[in-house]
Design a protein around this nucleic acid. Structure first.
Lengths: 210, 210
DNA sequence: GGAGAAACGGACGGGGGCGTCCGTTAGCGT
DNA sequence: ACGCTAACGGACGCCCCCGTCCGTTTCTCC
């Protein structure tokens, strides 16, 4: 029970930790979270035990590796919510998060329920969803966002965008950009809008199975 | 080399084969192709060896299990191509294939490149894509389908729709229906169309990684 | 009803991934 | 320079999955 936490890593340890995070980001971003922990360690030039010493479980490694991306995500949303034009803000959210996800497969999988516990808790999905819902409400009141849009539709679109990662890594950004443009088109309120089927309750995505 | 193929299965064998296909369809449709072959065998009430006797590899089981779905898919497309209103036909393709995929996760994964060899060869993806491209061209000439649509965009949408399978099984059909409606909205030609980013070359989806 | 072959299924080997143990190395403070 | 301890990493156990082998059961045909 005597807390003997050094709070200061030895130089080599700090070094290895950094290299591990870099390696994790590299591998996860291209191949997703299925990459073996061993491969991350090998890429970083350390043994598996070293990795597990720094990150007791794969989930810990994942959350640590994607801290920045998560912050970037939040920044995008905060910025959009502060946009004086809520419709423009919403479009920005869609476009930017889509390409962000397209650029990083691992982050997308982490963000969308591969390790739901870690991420939903860490960032407070709830808060983000609330902010988005508010933004969407304001966008609807401007008349640019179709009135039958519901916030869950945004989750729908994010999940759909994730599906694009089955494409070749090289094609992903272009695919997501084009997809985002289509989505914005679909969300635009206009005289040609055809009625939508009832919204889906996505509440609890099944755990695992990124 | 003496061909001693009975061509007529013993009654119990035929029975087991049917039960295996049923079990495979049930499990694959809900949980996708990640289900262990053992589980399929267990569900069918037979040993693993029996399964492998009927289907020498997992891929063989998958293709056999989804033969009907594949035919249904082709029928949808053929029917749509024969539709006197090509735009209506295209919409039908989108709606029906989206819900077909929403109802059956395993088929979707099989259809979209989890076992590319088996399926692309079996059905001739090429032919289907050609037919769709022709249909889309005709739809564009009616002025209902936006002119900057390219056939690859349909693959884009199918991949995106696949992403919705991360939702709970119960929510999938509703999600896909709504998604399809949004897509059709996005593809509609109208004065409010905003230009799209350049299309993505999806040509060769990476193998594996359903 | 009995012989022969087809079909069955439990047990096995191989591969891969996750997380751990312990003998060894190397940074740090004196 | 030297010892103490943090940090390292190869090797290990465990689990899961795929596909195979062989002794046993069961259908079929006479």
């Amino acid at each position: 029970m005597t807390a003997k936490v050094p709070h200061t890593l030895r130089s080599d340890a700090r070094d290895n930790r950094d290299r591990l995070l870099d390696a994790a980001r590299e591998l996860f971003s291209v191949d997703g979270l299925t990459v073996a922990v061993r491969d991350v360690a090998r890429r970083a030039g350390v043994g598996p035990a070293t990795l597990y010493r720094h990150f007791p479980t794969k989930e810990a490694l994942v959350t640590a590796a994607f801290e920045d991306q998560l912050r970037a995500c939040r920044d995008i949303i905060d910025e959009a919510c502060a946009d004086p034009d809520p419709w423009h803000g919403l479009c920005q959210v869609i476009e930017r998060i889509c390409v962000l996800h397209a650029q990083d497969r691992g982050f997308t999988e982490a963000f969308l329920s591969a390790y739901p516990r870690a991420f939903t808790a860490a960032v407070g999905h709830g808060h983000m969803l609330e902010a988005i819902a508010d933004l969407a409400g304001r966008a609807q009141r401007t008349g640019r966002l179709r009135p039958d849009f519901v916030p869950d539709d945004l989750v729908l679109m994010l999940l759909a965008n994730k599906g694009l990662q089955a494409a070749s890594p090289a094609a992903r950004p272009a695919a997501s950009r084009r997809f985002a443009a289509y989505i914005i088109q679909a969300l635009t309120h206009g005289p040609h809008n055809t009625p939508l089927p009832p919204p889906a309750r996505l509440a609890t995505p099944e755990p695992g199975t990124g």
